[in-house]
Every structure is written in structure tokens, then in C-alpha cells.
């Protein structure tokens, strides 16, 4: 009854919480996983000079709780059934997804969200509820410009009312 593993391959049961993997086609870089991860195994690194965001997953830090899978809005990060993660080089444990940050349409500096997030937000707005064109005008704006635009709008609206 002794198992013949490692001389014969073995699969973990279908319920097993194994190594997490990010599907780069689905990831929008929102960072929901980085907020819930208890050991900070998934982190978000923004580089404002080159305008990139990196979502970095280190399975050597991961405790495999699957909170990321639970919170990911697009189902990009999933726990697989793989478990053979032993290695002699810690770099083998790291998975990086790099994407572009959105550029502010007003001042041209990089915002604190990605282009993919903008796509996602625009894609999930149900028709008829919000004025689609106006939202698209507001996206993407950096937080500075968004604030000043809001103030300008508010004062204009207030003026009209008076």
C-alpha cells in the first residue's frame, strides 16, 4: 500500500487547493487579489515613469488559501491542482503579469489604474443606466484632473442654478 510516487506520477484530488496561476489574458490588474492576500504573496508594483503595472505572484510565499480566486472579478487567478513546486531557484516561483497604465486624457500623466481596467469598466456598464458618452469622457483621468474637473463642474452647475 505504500505509494510509488515519485517514480510514478500522481494527481491531487479535484478539490485540492494547489499552486495559483494567473491567466494573463483575463487579468485586468485591478489588484483585488493583492488587497485580500493574507501573506502578501501577490503584490502590485506601479512604475509611473514607464507607465506599467506589474502584478507579481510568488508561490513561494503563497499559503494557498484561495482568497484571491474568491475575490478576482474576472476569474483570472485560479488555484490549480499542481503541487510540485520544489526548486533550487526562488525565481522559478515568481509569475509576473505586466500591463500598461492608462494615460490621463487631460494632462497626459499616468493614472493609478490600467488600460485594461478602463476596458473592463466600460464593458460592464449595463445600457441605459448611465450616460455612456459622458463616462467615456471622464475615463481615463488621473485623480488630480478628476478632482479639478469635478470642482469645475460643480461650480458651473451651482452657477446655473443661481
Amino acid at each position: 500500500m505504500t505509494k510509488s510516487y515519485p517514480f510514478e506520477p500522481e494527481e491531487a484530488p479535484p478539490e485540492y487547493r494547489g499552486l495559483p496561476r494567473i491567466n494573463p489574458l483575463l487579468c485586468i490588474g485591478c489588484g483585488a487579489c493583492t488587497n485580500v492576500c493574507p501573506p502578501n504573496a501577490v503584490i502590485r508594483i506601479d512604475d509611473c515613469s514607464s507607465g506599467t503595472r506589474r502584478i507579481v505572484l510568488d508561490v513561494g510565499r503563497c499559503i494557498r488559501c484561495a482568497r484571491c480566486e474568491e475575490s478576482c472579478p474576472t476569474g483570472a487567478i485560479r488555484l490549480t491542482r499542481e503541487f510540485e513546486a520544489a526548486t533550487d531557484d526562488r525565481n522559478d516561483h515568481v509569475e509576473v503579469v505586466e500591463m500598461k497604465l492608462a494615460k490621463c486624457r487631460n494632462c497626459g500623466s499616468f493614472t493609478d489604474y490600467t488600460e485594461r481596467q478602463v476596458h473592463k469598466v466600460l464593458s460592464i456598464i449595463p445600457p441605459g443606466i448611465l450616460d455612456f458618452e459622458r463616462i467615456r469622457d471622464k475615463l481615463p483621468l488621473c485623480s488630480e484632473c478628476k478632482r479639478s474637473l469635478t470642482i469645475i463642474n460643480a461650480s458651473r452647475v451651482g452657477g446655473e442654478w443661481r
Partner: peptide, 28 residues
């Protein structure tokens, strides 16, 4: 099994399965 795999890797009985990944995919 994971521990067994680690020891087997050290002994050269199995091949390494992990490798780092760096994705810069444009497609969404």
C-alpha cells in the same frame, strides 16, 4: 508528495517543473 518530490529533485530522480513567468500580453 510535495516533500517527496523535493527530495527526489535533490537526488536527481525527477525533473524540475517550475519556471518563472513574465507575461506582457497585449490581448485582453
Amino acid at each position: 508528495e510535495e516533500i517527496l518530490y523535493g527530495i527526489a529533485l535533490l537526488r536527481g530522480l525527477v525533473k524540475k517543473k517550475m519556471g518563472g513567468e513574465h507575461y506582457t500580453v497585449k490581448e485582453l
